[in-house]
């Protein structure tokens, strides 16, 4: 059986150099975005989803665990951050912290249940847990049900940066994204990341080598969920609302789609995939409901013919790791 990630190339010094160059290019491009006149809201939204997809990719690409419920982290952190900002009146940095901590807590609780199973079983358990949360959020009063939490004040980060200013908000979101991205990059290149890859390739062998694989998987799951929650907290400042769509199972599907399009198990794939999908949603918005169908078609085409994804294909063609 072929593992779900076909993009695994052993890490060598040259590959790490390639990745550093690619990272430099990406950062430089993202830094000059506000000067180019591209709609900043679009890029900010794409950055939040890129971080979310990267967090998801940490699980599937390096742990071999396909989570079909990552929207629950996005939504939970979003709701908590929004509630903290609007009702508790916390400062932005504290609200982000509370939201991310909430996602981390959720990661611990759901992780203990979910990582006991692998493959399809893991996917279905995460899906079930996120559906459970969806219906809880539909009923609880603090989420305001179908309306969601709206009109969230953006405030001043650290009391200095006015987040209502799009340019300042952009750089704050970018900083958050780069922080999350580097954390994931560091994780997958650490001994911890190597063990994760070993578990992905052959869990039984990893166990026989003396690794407590459950603990590794749980830690990866919590880290992934926490970073997904961080992305959800950032998104609240961009969208200024927190709604049920963020917890819905189609959102979980979208996260999978982004990562699949970009390339499962590649470092930069989820970022590319998130930009592609968000751009598609932006520019095809005129087609209304047909966007769902187009997404479905992309899913099918990717699975049937394009399993490496955009970045995976490029990396494969040039025999590099990206």
């Amino acid at each position: 059986m072929t593992a779900i990630t076909e993009n695994s190339i052993p890490v060598t010094a040259r590959n790490t150099k390639d990745e550093m160059i690619a990272f430099g290019l990406m950062t430089a491009l993202l830094l000059v975005v506000p000067l180019t006149g591209v709609y900043p809201f679009f890029v900010m939204q794409a950055l939040c989803f890129a971080l979310l997809a990267c967090a998801f990719n940490l699980l599937i690409g390096y742990g071999g665990l396909l989570s079909f419920g990552h929207a629950m982290f996005l939504g939970t952190a979003g709701y908590i951050t929004a509630h903290a900002l609007k009702v508790w009146g916390l400062t932005p940095e504290l609200a982000i912290l509370v939201g991310t901590a909430g996602a981390a807590g959720l990661g611990i609780v759901t992780g203990v249940v979910a990582i006991r199973r692998q493959g399809i079983y893991f996917s279905m358990i995460t899906l079930a847990l996120s559906q459970l949360l969806y219906f809880i959020y539909l009923q609880t009063p603090f989420t305001h049900g179908e309306d969601g939490i709206q009109g969230i004040p953006q405030g001043h980060l650290f009391g200095i940066f006015n987040l209502a200013n799009p340019t300042i908000l952009y750089y704050v979101v970018l900083a958050g994204f780069l922080f999350g991205f580097l954390l994931i990059f560091r994780t997958i290149n650490s001994p911890f990341g190597e063990v994760l890859k070993a578990i992905r390739e052959n869990e039984q062998r990893a166990i026989s080598l003396g690794y407590k694989t459950d603990q590794y998987k749980l830690l990866a799951y919590i880290l992934s969920g926490t970073l997904a929650g961080f992305a959800g907290s950032l998104k609240v400042f961009v969208a200024q609302n927190a709604s049920l769509t963020d917890v819905h199972w189609t959102m979980s599907g979208e996260i999978v789609l982004m990562t699949l399009v970009g390339g499962l198990g590649t470092v930069f794939g989820p970022v590319v995939g998130a930009f592609v999908i968000i751009a598609m949603q932006q520019y095809l918005a005129g087609f209304g409901q047909w966007v769902t169908v187009i997404q479905g078609v992309i899913f099918v085409v990717c699975v049937l013919t394009f399993r490496r994804g955009v970045v995976g294909e490029i990396a494969h063609h040039f025999r590099r790791s990206l």
Binding site: M1, T2, A3, I4, L66, F68, G119, I120, S123, T250, G253, V256, L260, G288, Q289, W290, T292, V293, Q295, G296, V297, I298, F299, V300, C302, V303, L304, R307
Partner: peptide
Amino acid sequence: WLSGLDHLYGLLLTFGLALIIQGVFQN
């Protein structure tokens, strides 16, 4: 065409099919 690949690809493919069928009927 997915036989022999990881079973998760089957899940992803049928998910895509569900989106297509659902979207077409809804439209």
